[in-house]
Every structure is written in C-alpha cells, then in structure tokens.
C-alpha cells in the first residue's frame, strides 16, 4: 500500500501517458451512488480522489459546490466517508485513494484521530485545500509517519523561492493549480503558460510526480498530456448534475465521460 501512489505514476509513465485522476464528491448524490460511480470509473483511473463535502468551501466553483450540497443534503458524514473508502479499497486494494477537503472537517474530528482513521480504512493520500505551507508542516509530518502522502499544492502565484521550500517538504505527489481560479472555471491561461509553470516545478525536482488540476475538461486534457498526471473534477461533477437533471443514470454517463478522457491521453 505504501507506494501505491508512486506505482500508479510508474505504470502511467511506462505507458507513456499522464496518470488520470478523478475528483468526485463522496456521497454525491447518495452514499451508494458515489461508490458505484467510483467503482465504475476506476478501471480507467490511475488515482481516485474523493472530496469531503463542507458547507463553506472557499476555493470551489459552482460545480463542486453543487455536488457537495447534494451529498450533504443526503446526510453524508465523515464516518460514512471512512466506511465507503473501506468498501472501495476492499474491492480495489491497489487503486490509490486520496481524500480532499477543507481543514475544518479534519480539525473538528481531531488531526490525529482523522489520520489514524484514514490509515485504518486505506486512504493513500490527503489534500487539504486551505492548509497551506508552512502551516501544514506538523500535519504533513503526521501523515508521513502514518504512510499517508500529504499532497502539497502549488499555485501560479507561488514564488520560486516558496516553490522550492514546498517541494522540499512535499511527499510523492504535488498538485499544481493551473490558473488563478476556483475549481472548475475555464482555463484562464494558455496551455503554453501552464506547461511553462509546470516545467519550472519539474526542473526544481524532476523526480516528484506533479499533477495539474483546475479547469481540465475533455477539450483541454490532451494538450496537457505531457504532465505526470491530470486531475479532472468539476467536469465530472457537472456530468453528474446534468445526468440527475435529465433523469439519466449518472453511473453510466460519468463512466462514458471518464473513458473519453482516458482515450484522449493514451
């Protein structure tokens, strides 16, 4: 389990493609449905990311807000999320699972208790949107001790000096935010500019797996295929919203979308 995130990148690299990482909100639109969606798309995924819904998300755009809202309306709780992760890992033990959320949800549960629970159910990595460097030092250390990858984020506003420090304290995966935006808005920067930012990070430490996220869709994904990994979140959440609105099955629709995304990068 320890190196499952690294392995996922190795496999993708061997196939000469970026790792495909999905982001969906756990419990969207129901607990079971969100697990069904993830189970169904996981064959096309290298890493699965599940969002922990929070009702004051200050970095999410409309699509993920909608997903979180649905999940919360249907009563998802942190302990349900742990149970669902356990169920997912039971059938797909080698598929890395990253939980992503806001620090309030962890803080309220208790840092140590949260990390212990993550380890227990098989969480491989954590992204905490609003726990940035250097405030996350202790938390990241605690993750490391429990063999959980703490994923540091780097934004277009991050200075090179700060970038170096972040990379130094990072674990096996780094998340690069594509442009100055919340999740899900259209890419504000040109592909060239995004790749340029990406290369700055890679140059500092080539061995780190750097994934790009925020605003990646069916249209843009193939242009960014030189990255180590690509995260698609809002586009999937949008597809769930559309499916529910049109009274279609989100499981089949999302699976089709993820298959298409995969085809664009192989």
């Amino acid at each position: 389990m320890k190196n499952s995130i690294n392995n996922a990148f190795k496999v993708a690299k061997k196939e000469n493609r970026p790792a495909l990482i999905s982001y969906t909100v756990c419990g969207d639109n129901t607990k079971d449905k969100s697990l069904q969606i993830l189970n169904s798309i996981s064959k096309d995924l290298d890493i699965a990311e599940w969002g922990i819904p929070h009702n004051c998300p200050t970095a999410d755009g409309k699509d993920i807000q909608n997903s979180s809202y649905r999940a919360l309306q249907n009563g998802i709780r942190l302990n349900d999320i742990f149970k669902l992760v356990k169920r997912f890992k039971k059938t797909k033990p080698s598929k890395p699972m990253i939980l992503m959320g806001y620090y309030q949800m962890i803080f309220n549960y208790g840092d140590k208790k949260f990390i212990r629970k993550c380890k227990e159910v098989g969480v491989d990595g954590l992204i905490v949107v609003d726990l940035s460097f250097p405030d996350n030092k202790n938390f990241a250390e605690l993750c490391k001790k429990n063999s959980i990858c703490f994923v540091q984020l780097i934004a277009p506003t991050t200075t090179v000096k700060r970038m170096k420090e972040i990379i130094k304290s990072s674990h096996e995966m780094i998340y690069m935010i594509s442009s100055i935006s919340t999740t899900g808005s259209a890419l504000k920067y040109s592909i060239k500019r995004i790749i340029k930012n990406y290369n700055v990070i890679k140059k500092i430490k080539p061995s780190k797996n750097v994934v790009i996220g925020f605003g990646i869709t069916e249209k843009t994904i193939s242009n960014l295929r030189s990255a180590d990994g690509l995260v698609v979140g809002s586009a999937i959440c949008r597809e769930i919203t559309r499916s529910l609105k049109d009274r279609q099955n989100p499981v089949t629709n999302v699976s089709k979308l993820v298959r298409k995304l995969k085809n664009k990068i192989i």
Binding site: V129, D135, A155, I177, I180, S181
Partner: peptide, 21 residues
Amino acid sequence: KFGFYGNKFGGNYCAETMRKP
C-alpha cells in the same frame, strides 16, 4: 509568525493561490 493569537485563534487557512497576494 503564523498569524495566531494565543496559539489558538486566527491563522491563515487559505488556498495556496491566496498566499502570495
């Protein structure tokens, strides 16, 4: 230096994008 009052209140719990600004 982390923006905490009494080791307990405040801080800078924000997205990386906001850090530099």
